[in-house]
Design a protein around this nucleic acid. Structure first.
Lengths: 250, 250
DNA sequence: CGAGCGTTTGATCGGTGTCAAGGATCGTGG
DNA sequence: CCACGATCCTTGACACCGATCAAACGCTCG
């Protein structure tokens, strides 16, 4: 994206500008936030259910996911996060973590003190509004996941999930909607969709046979995005992306 | 609750103080927000998917729910709302509604212009933080719903939903956790849990037979709340209620 | 080359959906 | 005060989607 070495907090600006451009004062205030850099090994936890973290984590590279564990040991993944996402913004205001956050791959993170997050929202209301907007988009995505898991059949569910990834990766500049790297195992896909790994395997295989997509290792190639979106009952609106972030007309 | 006639926006203060007390200046600023009163007949829509509303709706009485419709006509309810909830705060910042909001019962609502909502967050940062917190709690509840619908069996799912209602109603001063009025049909419970009405009926009946609860019309009596919480794999933490709002020790 | 992890596949099981019909309750109007 | 219709609840028989169990296969990385 950038030739010059990127400021560690630059992805945050990019993300917060999803809801509209910020003034240069606002951008500078974001870049002036205090932070500590940290990296996480694959599968390690950023936050555990019950923690009372003093920092917010900005994902600078890699992928992370939120999940909860139920009584019988089952796991449900509630969301996937990528570069630019703040994965535990809520802990700053709510005090304790109500779920786990774990990295998928190796990940680079910037830790921003909660206190600084609260302060910037007071001193620069536009930044506060942008963060609030980001939280609202998060909520919108959760609603779509409730719907996906609650009311769609396996095939649609998986297609929907793949469509969501493709657009979010595209918007974040991490891939193209019809060809991208998805660093998730079938077991993790199962935990996103409330299915079992076995059934995810069969369903993906069938979609593959039907020519909907091709899989090589973890790369996904979508042959006909529009068709996949139809199968997945997928609408882009809930992602609340800007027009110019959706490069190809849907 | 109050002897003197309550200010129409008072429930909003009560709700925003879930995350901590506000100063009297902040409270007065809230009460000074412009608003219009409106009532909705049972089953009528407050907001439809795709709308671009200019107002936020504060629920003053009655119940409402958010829902989405999928390709085959199925409906998924994403959340239930009660007195004090702002049911479409997100539209103020995000521009358009990504889902439907419908009332369950007759409901009294106060419409607050989006502009006024944005302004108060700038002028009174503490109010902005409280609204943001409220959005974050919303998100937490959505995550729990994803988990509930994705990874729990029908019996646990329903028990969990009933536990959530009981605590939220108790916190809002609308009932006791072991006895309350739930104005939902079994079809609506099914749409909350991703089940069919028939299966909800059978499952509730079995819970009734097992002595977990008693149902008369729409009133629910919980015989042993702790046991219901166990069946529902229910933890209170995700609701982010204050200690003093949970009257009975869990 | 072997271990470990993830993927693939088959056989069978079970929880929930579907279809269908009857019963209860409640508001409304004669 | 009763009749009626509408809506919701209840129940049974059966079907099916996805879960479970088990085993083999294929990468990839020491």
């Amino acid at each position: 994206m950038t030739q010059s070495p990127e400021h560690p907090l630059a992805p945050l600006i990019q993300k917060l500008e999803y809801s509209g451009p910020l003034s240069s004062d606002d951008r500078n205030a974001i870049l002036a936030l205090p932070y500590t850099l940290k990296s996480f090994e694959p599968h390690s936890y950023i936050v555990r259910h019950g923690d009372r973290p003093a920092y917010s984590c900005l994902l600078r590279s890699g992928f992370a996911f939120r999940h909860k564990v139920v009584a019988d040991g089952g796991r449900q993944i509630c969301s996937i996060h990528m570069k630019g996402d703040i994965v535990d913004l809520q802990n700053c205001l709510l005090g304790y973590a109500d779920h786990n956050v774990q990295v998928l791959t190796h990940a680079e993170v910037a830790l921003i003190p909660c206190k600084a997050v609260r302060e910037i929202t007071v001193e620069r209301p536009a930044v506060g509004l942008a963060m609030w907007s980001d939280t609202l988009v998060d909520g919108s995505i959760f609603r779509e996941w409730v719907t996906n898991v609650g009311r769609r059949q396996a095939r649609r569910r998986l297609a929907h999930l793949l469509c969501e990834f493709s657009l979010r990766l595209e918007a974040a500049g991490l891939g193209a909607r019809d060809h991208y790297v998805l660093p998730m195992t079938q077991e993790q896909l199962a935990d996103c969709t409330g299915l079992t790994p076995v059934h995810v395997n069969r369903t993906l295989r069938q979609m593959d046979l039907d020519g909907l997509l091709e899989r090589t290792n973890r790369a996904v190639t979508v042959n006909d995005w529009k068709r996949l979106a139809e199968v997945g009952d997928f609408r882009t609106d809930y992602l609340h992306l800007r027009e110019d972030q959706l490069q190809i007309a849907q």
